[in-house]
Amino acid sequence: MATNTAAAPQRPSCDASTPNPYMPYLATVVEVIDETPNIKTFRVVLQDADAMKSFTFQPGQVGQLSVFGFGESTFVINSPPTRMDYLQFSVMRTGENTQALHNVAAGDTIGVRGPLGNSFPYESMKGKDIVFVGGGIGMAPLRTLLLFMLDNRKDYGKISLLYGARSPQDMAFSYELPEWLGRDDLDCVLTIDREAEGWQHKVGLIPNVLLEMAPSANNCVAITCGPPIMIKFTLQALEKLGFAPEQIVTTLEKRMKCGIGICGRCNIGDKYVCVDGPVFTLAELKEIPNEL
C-alpha cells in the first residue's frame, strides 16, 4: 500500500492574527454623483482613519461594495491611487444590489472590501504612447489609469482617449470632460452612437471612430473596456491598425462572490478573474480557453 506511506500534505491552520478577508471596512459615502440615468458615482471614505491612511491599491484593482441586507458586488476603484481623499466607484443599476446602492445617500454607511484583483501593467507602459478606448460604464476602469498617468505625465508618451456612449446623457464623468478636452497633453475624442442636438463631437460607433483616428501601433499600448460587443469589434479594429495582442489590454467581467479566488464561479479554465484578472492582455486571453 504505497499510497498509505506517501507523505500527506500538512493540515493548514490559522491564528487570531490571520485577517478575515470577508470582513468589509465600514465606509461613509461622502458624495453621490448622478452620472447618467442608470449610473451613479459614490465617493467613500473608510471610517477607520488609520485604515484609510494605509489603504493602498494599484490602478485597475477592484473593491466589493456592500449594502448590508442586500449583498456585495464588485466595482473597479476608479479614482487613482495618486488622489486618496476618497475612493470612487461608479455603479450601473442592473440588479438587486446595484439598486440598493443607488438608494444610498451621502452620509450613509456602506461596506468596502479591497483592493482585490490584479492591476494595469503601468510599469511596462512607461515610455510608450497610450490609447484608451472606453465605452459606456467601461470608462470607469480606464479613468483610474488615465488620471494616474496624467498625475505621472512625464513617464508616458502621447496619451489619447476615445470615449463613447450611446447618447450624451449616457456619458459618465461629463463634468470632467471639458478639462480632458482642454488639456494639451491629452488627445481626447468623444463619440456617441447617433446624432443628438447640440453635440459638438464625433458621431459613430467606437470601433469605426477608432479606425478613423488611426493611432500608430508603434511603441503604443491600447487599453480598452466596455460592453462585450464593443470590445469584440474594438479588438478587431486594433488588430487591423497593427496592434499586436501583447499591445492590447482589457478588463473582464464575471459574476463574483468572494473576490479572493475561492468561491469558484469566475474561472476561465485555471484562471480566476477575481485574482488573476480583471486585467488581461489580449495575448493572455488568447492563451486561455474560450469561455468569455
Binding site: P9, R11, P12, C14, T18, N20, P21, G261, V275
Partner: peptide, 23 residues
C-alpha cells in the same frame, strides 16, 4: 486545503472560517 489556505506561494487571502474548523 490549498485553496482555502491562500494558494501556497500565490499568497492569496486565507479563509479563516474554514481553517478554524479544519484545525
Amino acid at each position: 486545503d490549498p485553496v482555502y489556505d491562500g494558494c501556497g506561494t500565490k499568497g492569496l487571502a486565507k479563509d479563516v472560517y474554514y481553517l478554524k474548523r479544519r484545525q
